[in-house]
Design a protein around this nucleic acid. Structure first.
Length: 500
RNA sequence: GGUCCCUUCGUCUAUCGGCUAGGACAAGAGAUUCUCAGUCUCUAGAGAGGGGUUCGAUUCCCCUAGGGACUACCA
């Protein structure tokens, strides 16, 4: 089965740090890795990079699991499912990084640094003030004598371990999309920290060690990592390891061309989920920013993406996340649902709005079934159902006169129109819409007013809004009694107005 | 500031040297004898600028401009 078609044993990973909710950019990376693995009959690995003890939280970890679960992204190796190269949570591999860091020090590829945070802060400040070309660490501890080191050790200073970046030469790495990227070694971070003083590795160290140990073949990550590519290659070389294939993914931007952030709107998958975006819509849309199949086909099931996805079709340029287009996709996917599926999806939102109980009473279950066909083509997101159907579940505040009055139509005319329409409304249950509508039209013609001169006040009276699902259906769902009550109230309000 | 990356309609994209530059979202117009939505039809809208290479450049090369990312004991 393997062999000819997929000669390379593809192993890729999504390696987020659980420091916040999973966001659009992150899941796009996860999705691309996952699709690539599937399309190549390879292995998709999840690895949790929780080496920042200050920022990692259990909530964020849970959100990671929830999000991937919601999207239907299953990892072949990783936390919860295990695998031959575990553990897959970096904090559980704590000792390992220290061993490897020590090895680097022993080999003269890295060194302990005793500089205090305050010295580094001062250094940084001085550099920015002087607009110095030299930015970053000044390699103060690079060539400490054994004697100097023991003196620091005796003071009880816990050192960090820094990589000895070569002072000369340059480092090149190959990127599937970008081609060769070369950087002079003197432009690489001057001796970045590998192991922090709390004993945890930095991203650079942990990521290289784990990718090697987990036999990762392709590193697909966001383009923001390009600048540290040469540094990672230097690390692989220091260890004497094979460098994996890189594929830096274009970034996801906001409308203003900056990295997508909260200022642009929702960015966490959780928010999208809560608003009522469907996982298939989000997956489909997110996959289309930075990747395309042929520029024409735009609907892809997850299964299709798992076979059609190719690295070659990934775009190089960053892409703007278009909320409107996501809405469009979501609407399309909502309309593709069967009525009963949609009823199931909508129910939680009605429960949350306390329109119905949890679980809904039988009477409400059948009402929801009837609601579905009239809201289906109007929903952008599932939560829209709440505002759309409030009038069916809740008492309405008395409508205001201005809302009741159509444009260019006075109260007296409106009251007359309403009264004439009343008998029609009363027979609503037994007549087809076309007939009812025809009768309304006749009245309007008789009175010499616009059709909306009748429809609109009824709509406002019954639904409390100038925007609503079709009127006759709305009244049927509401029930004739309630509808008539609301109409009478409207007539009363308008009559009052006439008296003034 | 330094380093690196990017550049086709407002947005996502197609084009692997032959283009009357295609599609989708958004926008605008119309139709659907109730609003909104949906659906259908139509309209407008692009290869940053300048040099090369070539019979021919959106496509290849160079420069300029613009944008972005990175520059932490964060990832």
């Amino acid at each position: 089965m393997q062999g000819g078609m997929f000669p390379m044993d593809v192993r890729v990973r999504y390696a987020p740090s659980p420091t916040g909710l999973q966001h659009i950019g992150g899941v796009r990376t996860a999705l691309f890795n996952y699709f690539f693995a599937r399309s190549q009959h390879g292995v998709f690995i999840l690895r949790v990079e929780d080496t920042d003890q200050g920022r990692s939280t259990p909530e964020a970890l849970q959100d990671l699991y929830d999000t991937l679960g919601w999207l239907g992204v299953k990892w072949d190796e990783g936390p919860l499912v295990g695998g031959p190269h575990g553990p897959y949570i970096q904090s559980e591999r704590f000792g390992l990084y220290q061993e490897y860091a020590k090895k680097l020090v022993d080999d003269g590829k890295a060194y302990p640094c005793y500089c205090s945070e305050s010295r580094l802060a001062q250094l940084r400040e001085a550099q920015t003030a002087a607009k110095s070309k030299e930015q970053g660490y000044d390699r103060h501890c690079r060539n400490l004598t054994a004697e100097q080191r023991t003196r620091y050790e005796d003071q009880g200073i816990k050192p960090v371990i820094r990589l000895k970046v070569p002072l000369e030469g340059s480092t090149t790495f190959h990127d599937v999309l970008m081609g060769d990227i070369t950087r002079k070694n003197r432009d690489v971070n001057p001796d970045p920290v590998l192991l922090k003083s709390d004993g945890f590795p930095t991203y650079h160290l942990a990521n290289v060690i784990d990718d090697h140990l987990m036999k990762i073949t392709h590193i697909m990550r966001a383009q923001e990592w390009i600048p540290s590519g040469p540094l990672h290659v230097l690390l692989y070389e220091a260890f004497g390891w094979k460098v994996p294939t890189y594929c830096h993914l274009p970034m996801v931007m906001g409308k203003d061309g900056q990295k997508l952030s909260k200022r642009h709107g929702s960015t966490s998958v959780k928010e999208f989920r809560e608003k009522g975006y469907l996982p298939e819509a989000l997956t489909n849309y997110v996959s289309m920013v930075g990747w395309s199949y042929d520029g024409v086909k735009e609907f892809f099931t997850k299964d299709e993406l798992e076979t059609l996805f190719t690295l070659e079709k990934i775009n190089k340029a960053p892409g703007v996340f278009d909320y409107k287009k996501l809405d469009w996709y979501n609407g399309m996917y909502i309309r593709a649902k069967s009525d009963s599926e949609l009823a199931q999806l909508l129910t939680p939102y009605l429960i949350q709005a306390s329109f119905v109980s949890d679980p809904p009473e039988q009477e409400h279950v059948s009402l929801i079934e009837k609601i579905v066909p009239i809201v289906k083509e109007r929903l952008k997101v599932l939560s829209d159902v709440v505002d759309m159907t409030r009038y069916l579940f809740k008492d309405l505040p008395a409508p205001k006169i201005e809302e009741l009055l159509p444009k260019n139509q006075d109260a007296a005319t409106t009251v007359r129109a309403l009264r004439k329409a009343l008998p029609i409304v009363k027979r609503i249950g037994t007549r087809p819409d076309e007939e009812l509508e025809q009768e309304i039209v006749s009245i309007a013609n008789e009175m010499g007013i616009k059709i909306n001169g009748i429809f609109m006040p009824i709509r406002v009276a019954v639904t409390g809004s100038t925007v609503s699902p079709p009127l006759f259906d709305s009244i049927r769902l509401l029930g004739l009694d309630t509808a008539l009550l609301r109409l009478e109230r409207a007539v009363t309000i308008l009559s009052h107005q006439m008296g003034n």
